[in-house]
C-alpha cells in the first residue's frame, strides 16, 4: 500500500513537472496549422477515401453508405475495393496517369532549364535590380490565371497572333497547328509554373557565398567547373523544392490541358472531373484522386528526406 502511495506521489509530481513545463503559447502556435491540416486535408481525405470504397447509386448522395443497419440488428460495413481494381482494368486511367506524370516530368525539366539561369541571374544582380527582377517574376500573378491561359489561346490559335504574323511575313503558307497539341500544353504549363521554380531557386542561390567560387577559381577551377562542382551541388535543395512545387500540382493540373490540350489524351485531373460531373460516379472519381495522391506521396517523401538530411548538414 505504502509502495503504491509513493508511486502515486511520483506520478503526481511528474504530472506537476510537466504542467510547469507546459507552454500554452507554443501549443497554440502549433495548433493553428495542425487544426488547419486536420480540417482541410485529413478530414476531406478520410471522406474521399470512404466514398472511394462505396458503390454508385441514383440517390442523394450518389453513392451507397458504408455503414448500414441490417434489419435493425447488425451493423454492416460494406467496402467496395473494386473501384480501385476498375482503374487498372480500363486503360483510359492508366494512360491518363502515365500521360500526367510524363507532362509533369517534362514541364518540370523545362521549368528547371529555364528557371535556373533566371534565378541565378537575379541572385547575382545588384540589390536594386534584384528587387525589380523579382517583381517581374511575380507580376503575372496580378492578372487572373485563367485570363493568361486564354491569352495563350489567342497567341497559339490557327488564326492567332503567331500564325498570322508568320503568314503575313510569308514564312509559312498554312497555319501551324499549335493549339491542342502537347506543345501548347507544355507552353501553358511551363509559362504558368515557372515562378514556382524560380522563387525557391532564387532563395537558395541568393544565399551562396561568393568566396566559395573565388576559392574554386583560386584552386584552378574554370568558371564552368566551379559552377558544376560548387554552385550546382549547393543549390540541390532549391532545385528539389522548385521541382516539387512544379511537379506535384502539374500532375493534377486541370485548367491548362482542358483549354490548350489534346482532346484525345486526357490528363488525370480532367478524368477526375469528368467522373465527378459527367458520369456522376463519385466512388470511381474518389479512387482516382486517392491513387493520384499515392503516386505523389513518393516524391514528397523523397523531398522530406532530402530536407532532413540538408537540415542535419547545416551548422
Amino acid at each position: 500500500m505504502g509502495c503504491l502511495k509513493s508511486r502515486g506521489g511520483q506520478r503526481l509530481s511528474g504530472v506537476l513537472a510537466r504542467l510547469r513545463q507546459w507552454r500554452p503559447g507554443r501549443g497554440l502556435v502549433i495548433a493553428v496549422p495542425m487544426g488547419w491540416l486536420l480540417l482541410f486535408f485529413l478530414a476531406p481525405f478520410v471522406i474521399d477515401f470512404k466514398i472511394s470504397l462505396a458503390q454508385v447509386q441514383v440517390a442523394i448522395p450518389p453513392y451507397t453508405p458504408m455503414f448500414e443497419w441490417v434489419q435493425d440488428k447488425a451493423l454492416a460495413i460494406r467496402l467496395h475495393w473494386h473501384n480501385y481494381a476498375f482503374l487498372f482494368t480500363d486503360s483510359l486511367y492508366i494512360r491518363s496517369y502515365i500521360y500526367s506524370l510524363q507532362v509533369a516530368a517534362v514541364s518540370t525539366l523545362f521549368c528547371l532549364l529555364l528557371g535556373y539561369p533566371m534565378a541565378y541571374g537575379i541572385a547575382r544582380a545588384e540589390p536594386a535590380t534584384r528587387n525589380l527582377l523579382l517583381m517581374l517574376v511575380v507580376l503575372p500573378f496580378w492578372t487572373s490565371f485563367l485570363l493568361r491561359v486564354y491569352a495563350w489561346m489567342g497567341l497559339l490559335r490557327n488564326n492567332g497572333l503567331i500564325n498570322n504574323a508568320l503568314l503575313s511575313l510569308g514564312l509559312i503558307d498554312t497555319p501551324i497547328q499549335m493549339m491542342q497539341t502537347d506543345f501548347s500544353v507544355y507552353i501553358g504549363i511551363v509559362y504558368s509554373y515557372l515562378p514556382f521554380m524560380i522563387l525557391p531557386l532564387y532563395t537558395n542561390l541568393e544565399k551562396h557565398d561568393n568566396t566559395l567560387l573565388e576559392a574554386a577559381a583560386d584552386l584552378g577551377a574554370r568558371p564552368v567547373t566551379a559552377f558544376l562542382r560548387v554552385t550546382l551541388p549547393l543549390s540541390l535543395p532549391g532545385i528539389l523544392a522548385g521541382s516539387l512545387l512544379v511537379f506535384i500540382p502539374v500532375v493534377g493540373e486541370y485548367v491548362i490541358p482542358s483549354l490548350l490540350g489534346r482532346p484525345d489524351q486526357l490528363m488525370i485531373g480532367r478524368v477526375l472531373s469528368d467522373e465527378f460531373f459527367a458520369n456522376r460516379d463519385w466512388p470511381v472519381a474518389s479512387a482516382v484522386a486517392i491513387l493520384m495522391l499515392v503516386f505523389l506521396l513518393l516524391p514528397i517523401m523523397l523531398f522530406q528526406r532530402a530536407q532532413q538530411r540538408n537540415a542535419a548538414g547545416q551548422t
Binding site: 557565398d209 568566396t211 566559395l212 573565388e214 576559392a215 583560386d218 551541388p233 549547393l234 548538414g313
Partner: peptide, 11 residues
C-alpha cells in the same frame, strides 16, 4: 590563397 572565412566547400 587562404581565405579569411576559410571558404571551405560545405558539401
Amino acid at each position: 590563397m587562404m581565405f579569411q572565412s576559410y571558404a571551405l566547400f560545405p558539401h
